[in-house]
């Protein structure tokens, strides 16, 4: 069979899965669940210097029902844990969770009576960004990892 180039056909073929995933990964509506120190680096990442908008993730939505990605930024205490779970449950599928900072990954150096030892004990996590707090470059790297994950994900829709 003769293979035509893009210029000849004026179009190209792809799998629907890939197309949908491609569209999804560049339209990340994030819900920033900001609690602590990491919020400062989240702010730095979101603002003009690092410009998270380049990755199609520039628009935070402050309603979980409109968000795709839950950014859990900062220490989660046991008092706050039910709230986090509640927010996660309100998000519509497909949804992803990014654990931002080492406190959300493992509890960090807050091994005490008040702190949740990693949010993955409460909700599933897709990407872990360690660091206390992670530098904006780490965050962008984590975001790109998340995009890769969204691209190859097989989801029923």
């Amino acid at each position: 069979m003769e293979v035509k180039t893009l210029e000849q056909t004026g179009g190209f073929t792809s799998k629907l899965d890939d197309m949908v995933a491609w569209a999804r990964k560049f339209s990340i509506f994030q819900y920033p669940f900001i609690t602590a120190c990491c919020g400062m680096e989240y702010m730095s990442t979101a603002c003009s210097h690092y410009d998270v908008d380049r990755f199609g993730a520039g628009l935070p939505r402050f309603s979980p029902r409109q968000a795709d990605v839950l950014f859990v930024v900062g220490t989660i205490s046991h008092k706050l844990a039910p709230v986090l779970k509640h927010i996660y449950d309100q998000m519509a599928d497909p949804k992803w969770v990014v654990a931002f900072g080492v406190c959300t990954c493992t509890g960090g150096f807050y091994n005490n009576y008040a702190t949740v030892q990693g949010i993955d004990t409460i909700i599933p996590v897709d990407v872990y960004i360690p660091g206390c707090p992670p530098r904006p470059e780490y965050v962008l790297d984590g975001l790109m990892k998340l995009q890769e994950k969204i691209q190859i994900e097989k989801k029923a829709y």
């Binding site: 046991h78 008092k79 844990a81 039910p82 779970k85 091994n111 005490n112 009576y113 008040a114 949740v116 030892q117 004990t121 409460i122």
Partner: peptide, 16 residues
């Protein structure tokens, strides 16, 4: 929790 006889990592989670 700040009483000396409260262990510093005795957690009482609400969920999880």
């Amino acid at each position: 929790p700040l009483r000396k006889d409260y262990p510093h990592n005795k957690r009482q989670p609400l969920i999880g």
